[in-house]
Design a protein around this nucleic acid. Sequence first.
DNA 1: CATGAATGAGATTTCATTCAT
DNA 2: TATGAATGAAATCTCATTCAT
Lengths: 219, 219, 219, 219
Amino acid sequence: MDACTSKPATRRPILPQRDPERTRGAILAAATAEFSAKGLDGARVDEIAHRSGVNKRMIYHYFGDKEGLYLAALEASYAAIRTAELGLRLSDLDPIDGMRTLVRFTWDYFIAHPEFLSLLGTENLHRAANLKKLHRIRELHSPLIGMLSDLVARGVKQKVFRKAVDPMQLYISIAALGFFYLSNRHTLSTIFGQDLNAPAALSERGDHIVEVVLGYLRA
Amino acid sequence: MDACTSKPATRRPILPQRDPERTRGAILAAATAEFSAKGLDGARVDEIAHRSGVNKRMIYHYFGDKEGLYLAALEASYAAIRTAELGLRLSDLDPIDGMRTLVRFTWDYFIAHPEFLSLLGTENLHRAANLKKLHRIRELHSPLIGMLSDLVARGVKQKVFRKAVDPMQLYISIAALGFFYLSNRHTLSTIFGQDLNAPAALSERGDHIVEVVLGYLRA
Amino acid sequence: MDACTSKPATRRPILPQRDPERTRGAILAAATAEFSAKGLDGARVDEIAHRSGVNKRMIYHYFGDKEGLYLAALEASYAAIRTAELGLRLSDLDPIDGMRTLVRFTWDYFIAHPEFLSLLGTENLHRAANLKKLHRIRELHSPLIGMLSDLVARGVKQKVFRKAVDPMQLYISIAALGFFYLSNRHTLSTIFGQDLNAPAALSERGDHIVEVVLGYLRA
Amino acid sequence: MDACTSKPATRRPILPQRDPERTRGAILAAATAEFSAKGLDGARVDEIAHRSGVNKRMIYHYFGDKEGLYLAALEASYAAIRTAELGLRLSDLDPIDGMRTLVRFTWDYFIAHPEFLSLLGTENLHRAANLKKLHRIRELHSPLIGMLSDLVARGVKQKVFRKAVDPMQLYISIAALGFFYLSNRHTLSTIFGQDLNAPAALSERGDHIVEVVLGYLRA
DNA sequence: CATGAATGAGATTTCATTCAT
DNA sequence: TATGAATGAAATCTCATTCAT
């Protein structure tokens, strides 16, 4: 009786929580944190729901299943770094400064985005099984390769860089010098008895990486 | 009587069914493979029991629990590389040859022991939580650091190496250049559309790493 | 529309399948029976799930683990007897009748609630380890102590009770005379070759207990 | 070869450990402690083997299985108290002193043998299922019943005790007043916020029990 | 779109008991 | 008699996913 006569009065608030974009984003952020912290198998769907403040059912609504959610987080992380990389403007710089900028950028990005390193580690543990499912896989190709090619070519022409440098190998090496240090900082710190994560240690490592790359490249 | 007439050489059964050493070893080998393939959370105790051909109960008898087994596998992997490293004899070589040998050794070891890379990745995902529990943690410190110090010092003295090279940073870089390539070969191969795991690709990468290190170090 | 035309009285299903209160209660009832029958270690979570007709998973959802469930059952049993005790009205009765009523109440409650005796036995086997974890432990204190104090004081004043009676000792003795007989009825019956659980035997024991208490107390 | 030529030299020590009586006794003692501390279901065969310093296989050799071992421990505990009870000499004492002696004896025995209380508790949890299997069950009948009958009869004759006292009920009550206090001392201490196990508390309880029994019995 | 109770399959771990030596 | 490694059954607990509302 009362339920029928007083419709508006008993309504819930004007549904502020119905915001699909916001819900999806909250889930993705929580999932990125959880997968990054615990890996694909260690991550808990319940925990992601809890962290995001979203009902568990919504996860399945938006992402299908746990794997789909993981894949979305992985893709978003790749998209983010590619987008950031596209912001690099190296053509105005001389080869050495350009290279230094590129190396620094990569290092700084890795420091700022530990979740990207972790998700990559997880994905490689699974032999890139999930990554291969991505449709727009070509878009994952880094624009840095092209930038590196250009820088190297200019450097060789100006005789400041050595010849016969493979841009892909160089790209991998630049990533490697930062990635390994950061992704393995916990075991390395334990073994060396030093905190490799301290600001001073990170700064020192950044300088070292630049020196290695430029030292190797010098003509 | 019979104990004396039978030949001593044939006394012991060829496959003793009660051989703790053998059982423990079989479990550890299977565990290393399983943890390496699937990580700590993804690994299945049942699968390890099945692979090793021993009763699941024995795993708990010898290693306490899943984590204890993982830790034993991790420790054994560390012990193996440290033992291999100790076999390196670089003092007879000139600094450049010595450095080349050390870099090659590291690269070859990583290729031959993908399980070590994977276990390290898993351990870092867990922020070295398990590694810190190891008692003899100091023994995990690589003898390569000392060898590198010596090589660098000799190279500087002979004016073939640059000055002010931090052996620890160099050690990390040498490891990084190989480790990252190998541990990330699946995602990298997917993105580049090339098989970075092919023998030719591995060979090429090995040469590149040597060049980067020696190129950086040259005076 | 349809919501308004259908009769409100019949809206709610007679047996709602999603009823947390009901589920929790069913688990607790089954757990009390199982723990009471077999002790903490002998009880089986599977059996509790089966008896209560709920999914095993729900037990962990509502009570955390087996121990948490046991603790909840123990606490509920204590709460039940304390609630029942609070219903006793002895102030209108003369000391002797009041004492008789109190003793009878205790005996009758023990007969009606064998699960309480059994849970206490189990808890004592574990040296009250679980009971100590309860937050509201003070609420477990029996109101009977106060009632006994009052009865004894009145009885002494009226010179029908002996002096120097410690209410706590008396409370323990009243409980003991019933508790021991009932909790040990199986071994006692076996040894005496009599069924101490027969109605006549229980009745006789009740009379005996009253006589012991009043006989002891008489001035 | 050497194994055949040098027999005595390679023999094990002159087998001091081959002492069936000793082995059996060690197992029984450890079992009594373990079953008493953890109940039938909570007790661990491994732990008993460890505590007794005897190989696990021996337990099965001597006692058949876990239940057989438990039963042997239970029987031994009963035998011990019956033997102790037989040492009581009350016929020289007047009824009141005899009763006091008997009550004290029971109380003191319970204090000295907590394992007996615990085993009885466990056995009652299992509804005396194991006790019923004992062959010489009649021998478990306490000689105290006869002694009580005699004391009560003498007391009635001397007009110091009340009439119509059932010796079995009295026996149960005497046991109850001590047993319940001791077996439930952990929960009672927790609830009352007092240490009922302290020497002073035990002494006080002993006095109380004597007073209750003699107070009840007085003519 | 949203909730959170409910589920079933499967994970880790435990334990009394037996077997090979 | 004695040893302790080995076993299989069963226990507790977990988790991604679905269902009723």
